[in-house]
């Protein structure tokens, strides 16, 4: 049986900043439960010391020289924004902190 409870779905949705209705929570809990049960088989595949692969083609030390390249103009930077003011991106007030 899956451990994907509605409360866990709510928590994960909140971590992912996605608003979910109660109906959606129930539905997602069911769907994710099935998927998680299926993908959990990866645990069976690995035993002992297997090095994880995070890059399919092993590489290292890829660096850029410390050189300044052209930036966007302020107008370009703000061109896709839903709202802006005083050359800055405008957002609703922030709830937490301070």
């Amino acid at each position: 049986m899956s451990e994907i409870t509605p409360d866990l779905v709510r928590h994960l949705a909140s971590l992912s900043r996605i608003l979910v209705t109660d109906d959606e929570v129930e539905k997602l809990a069911g769907e994710l439960g099935v998927i998680v049960d299926s993908v959990a088989t990866v645990n069976k595949a690995v035993s002992g010391d297997v090095v994880p692969t995070s890059h399919p083609i092993p590489m290292s030390n890829v660096f850029r020289e410390d050189e300044v390249a052209p930036s966007l103009t302020q107008e370009q930077a703000l061109s896709g924004a839903a709202d802006s003011a005083e050359g800055r991106f405008k957002v609703a007030a922030i709830l937490d902190e301070d």
Partner: peptide
């Protein structure tokens, strides 16, 4: 105090006009 930013070529300077030392990388486009 590098000349450019950590992951892009935008100038690492203090006090410029807002959003003028930005590019697709540091704007997270």
């Amino acid at each position: 105090n590098t000349k450019s930013k950590m992951f892009c070529g935008c100038a690492n300077v203090f006090g410029n006009e807002p959003n003028t030392n930005v590019c697709p990388i540091c704007l997270g486009l």
